[in-house]
Design a protein around this nucleic acid. Structure first.
Lengths: 250, 250
DNA sequence: GAACGGTATTTTGTCGACAATCGACTATTG
DNA sequence: CAATAGTCGATTGTCGACAAAATACCGTTC
């Protein structure tokens, strides 16, 4: 068994805000006030500030000196940006994965795809996505490119926000999704670099299309606060319940 | 005339440390103590901490909770990582530049190349690099991809550190360098996406080779502190001169 | 002499208070 | 009534102090 270090306070706070952003409880463009957050979580502003810096690194939050933090807005240009970059980076990961993966790596990767297939058979959506995530993570590790891993992991929450947005609107079945993954895996297993990379490209290009379409559909719902920043002031006080239950120190 | 907002204190501090890292005054792997820096610059630890977080976003510094900050080490794997990623991102930028640039963009870009050529004729190395930087920046802006611009700009200091390292050891002349730039520009001007992208690839692959070779040559000089962290303790007190001269507020 | 344990020191983390800045509101003036 | 200047409240920035953790040091024991 491997033990994992307890998350630091700023990490926990970041996690909390991150989830709120991904679930659109904090809307794109909405401004974030440190003092309010600190009061809500019953901590001082220092760890909140650290947390916001972390989220800035993950591009979920934009900070301007002396003006504070805003949830990153969702313009078409931005989403296009995000997917194109993610695509380029994951294509690179796929390439390096075919070049550097060991037989053990490939075996582990293959297992995650088998798990995913099984999940689809059982129609277990959650298990499918877990396996898919596992698959991606294992490929990434097999690429043995530490910086690339960090950078993709940093972008992941931003992608997850988009997935949350598109989730209800996406038409393709789990099965279709799985097919692409299985195809990609097949290329990986046989070390077919070009086709593995191309499969990633295909997958993410499709994802981008879905995201852009969804944005058109749900634009007014999501972005109303971006256009009218005044209503972000948060007049209505929320019930102050501390969401950080599992904190011991402090 | 356009006025530019004064840099915030953390930005100035980050700038200061950044330069030290790029010039190897702070060695790869060396640990950074907040209190010492704060004393050196005669500020409190808060802005220093912010500065370190900024540098972490630029991958010049690695932070581990409760253990502090270290200058990012220069392993071969890391450098390879860095160049491959930078290459992938700039290739994307080149692609989007050919797709989205306006005639005015192209005109401006072309001008920077003319300036660079002129600098080479005058054997003005500094002017050449300034023009080259201008060229890159203009291409990046023409790609109209805000996130990509940010990400590449964030990686730039890390690349600059490598350039500093390779500067003395590189054999190719300014002229050779210029030739590739002129070739890339030609492809851009005629909207030849494939070849523009390929030229970027060629350029950065070459840069990567140089960097890796240089590392072999200068490894022991540079990395001695990485292997023996004890001597990073900084027993010798440096003369305390405030390098932040142009601060007015505070 | 090496390994272990405990203590001391150094370093990072968190806090509350105060200062500087920004944005909204109001009053004054043309 | 519109535009500007001034003022007030809200928000971020910086500080010094204290708490907690990690590291270094040193003595003990085998």
């Amino acid at each position: 068994m491997t033990f994992i270090a307890a998350q630091s306070l700023p990490e926990q706070i970041a996690e909390h805000i991150r989830e709120k952003i991904i679930r659109f409880e904090l809307k794109p463009g909405e401004s974030i006030r440190e003092a309010q957050l600190a009061a809500e979580l019953q901590v001082s502003r220092s760890p909140v500030r650290e947390a916001l810096k972390m989220l800035e690194k993950q591009r979920l939050v934009e900070q301007t000196p002396r003006k504070g933090s805003k949830v990153t807005g969702l313009s078409k240009a931005y989403i296009s940006s995000l997917y194109n970059i993610t695509c380029a980076l994951i294509m690179l990961a796929a390439k390096e994965c075919t070049e550097k993966s060991t037989p053990e790596d490939l075996k582990k990767i293959n297992q995650t795809v088998l798990n995913a297939a099984d999940a689809v058979r059982r129609k277990d959506i959650h298990a499918y996505y877990t396996s898919f995530f596992d698959f991606s993570l294992n490929c990434l590790k097999a690429a043995r490119n530490p910086l690339l891993e960090e950078m993709i992991l940093d972008l992941l929450p931003s992608v997850r926000r988009m997935q949350y947005l598109t989730f209800t609107l996406r038409s393709e079945s789990l099965y279709e999704n799985l097919q692409i993954v299985e195809r990609g895996n097949a290329y990986l297993q046989q070390g077919n670099r070009e086709m593995a990379v191309e499969t990633v490209n295909e997958y993410l290009t499709k994802e981008k299309e879905v995201a852009l379409k969804t944005l058109d559909a749900g634009r007014d719902l999501i972005n109303q606060r971006m256009k009218d920043p005044s209503i972000t002031a948060g007049k209505e006080k929320k019930s102050i319940v501390n969401p950080l239950e599992n904190r011991e120190s402090l």
